[in-house]
Design a protein around this nucleic acid. Structure first.
Lengths: 240, 240
DNA sequence: CACATTCATTGATCTGAATCAAGGACTGGC
DNA sequence: GCCAGTCCTTGATTCAGATCAATGAATGTG
């Protein structure tokens, strides 16, 4: 398993680019002088390869900004069972909770660059900047909304509805949306999809086959999925 | 099914009490003059009986403050399947999303008094009050954290672990915490518990019986549950 | 206080997804 | 371009929880 690397301090220019992207993506209209440099001091830039865990103190809450790449947020129940709680992509800002009931870990799906922040210091720093808190609040509410929809799927949907729901949701996030057809390059494995949907890898594979047979999707290689009829797929997903 | 009632305008005093409780619970240290009265104008006080749905425009996001009582936030997948996404109790402030994938409804478990706010106007009003945004952010992050833990349960736990997890979680929220024994008065029915844990009413009942047989809980009537050994129960819940 | 109704419990059976097992297809490294 | 290793697919069987069915306990209403 490859290990994670902090960016060497020589790459100051690169670090600056990453931090600027964060500020731009996070609060484009704010003019932050002191706050900006305070955040810059807090930001821990980290670059990890595919399959690596992003080092985060499990005892403290953290915020993580994804500059580029993709990650999975994993929660571990006892006896090694893992549940993927969320996927995140470039320009996402997420909160990683310290483990109370379960322990959380953040893992890169592809080569990924992130900034990590200790949550307490981060919140303290932005406390006086309504634009920033509002932005963070918006992200949190979006995450909450997504998590609730996920709970509906995990609690009340069958395997096929879960996979259809997952594909439609991913299409919204990482594909150019076309009404007719829609091409997705999934950065996660079948196992990841299973761990996200509360299913096994075999069930995921079988449902891919069924959706393919039904003419709703086409697959190319391991990662490319074409949604032939997104509307019909959304219907199978049990969306209202 | 009983219908909900706005508080008659005659009960101005009562309304004021409710609103004051909201401000006190929400941002005890803030001195809000204009913002306070602006919020007061936005607040829609509603009082509903057991089993009633709290009227919320399904087309727009809302925030709801619970003055007293208890509620369930229900999401409906297609074909009438319902998933309870969260329970809320006195002094909670929650966000109710407009339905995108699924439609949400808020329903009272007991006689309940709430204040509802249109989300857009609410956010606009508090935008310049860091204390308030921070409070709202904190509540959102707590809700997100709870929802993630719920996702772990729904995705990766068996029936007994889910019920044990539920009981331990409820004990934290609505009971005086005693290390040895802990008495809970659950305001929700077996069906509600099932709809929250992604299980049927029969499975819930069987698991109650098993936990009772194992000496971990005692039940009195329909609603009272005594946790005889919270630590052992937490272990059965698969908590780390 | 008795009745009606809803709610909870228990049992028997069924089913969708898990598990066990084996073969086949990508992908990346040399 | 070949090979090794990983990832994916498909089939057979098992099992946890759903469903179907019936009885028994709470609640609250007249």
């Amino acid at each position: 398993m490859p290990v994670s690397n902090r960016l060497p301090s020589a790459q100051t220019a690169h670090r600056k680019l990453l931090f600027d992207a964060f500020l731009r993506g996070f609060a484009p209209n704010a003019s932050l002088d002191e706050t900006g440099s305070a955040l810059h001091k807090l930001a821990q830039p980290i670059c990890v390869g595919r399959g690596c865990t992003i080092p985060i103190d499990p005892a403290k809450d953290a915020f993580v900004y994804i500059g580029c790449g993709a990650t999975k947020l994993i929660a571990s129940a006892s006896s090694g069972r893992e549940q993927i709680v969320a996927f995140h992509f470039a320009d996402d800002l997420m909160s990683v909770p310290a483990g109370a009931c379960h322990s959380y870990g953040l893992c890169a799906l592809v080569e990924t660059e992130v900034l990590t922040f200790a949550a307490d210091a981060f919140l303290e720093t932005i406390a006086a900047e309504p634009l920033l808190i509002n932005a963070l609040l918006g992200r949190s509410l979006t995450a909450l909304h997504r998590c609730r929809d996920k709970a509906v799927g995990l609690g009340r949907k069958n395997a096929q509805e879960r996979l259809a729901s997952f594909l439609v949701g991913m299409a919204d996030r990482i594909s150019s949306i076309e009404t007719e057809r829609c091409v997705l390059d999934l950065p996660m494995s079948r196992r990841d999809i299973g761990d996200s949907l509360g299913l096994t890898i075999e069930t995921i594979s079988r449902q891919f086959s069924e959706l393919r047979l039904a003419g709703l999707i086409e697959t190319t290689g391991r990662s490319r999925v074409t949604l032939c009829d997104p509307a019909a797929l959304a219907e199978r997903a049990g969306h209202v």
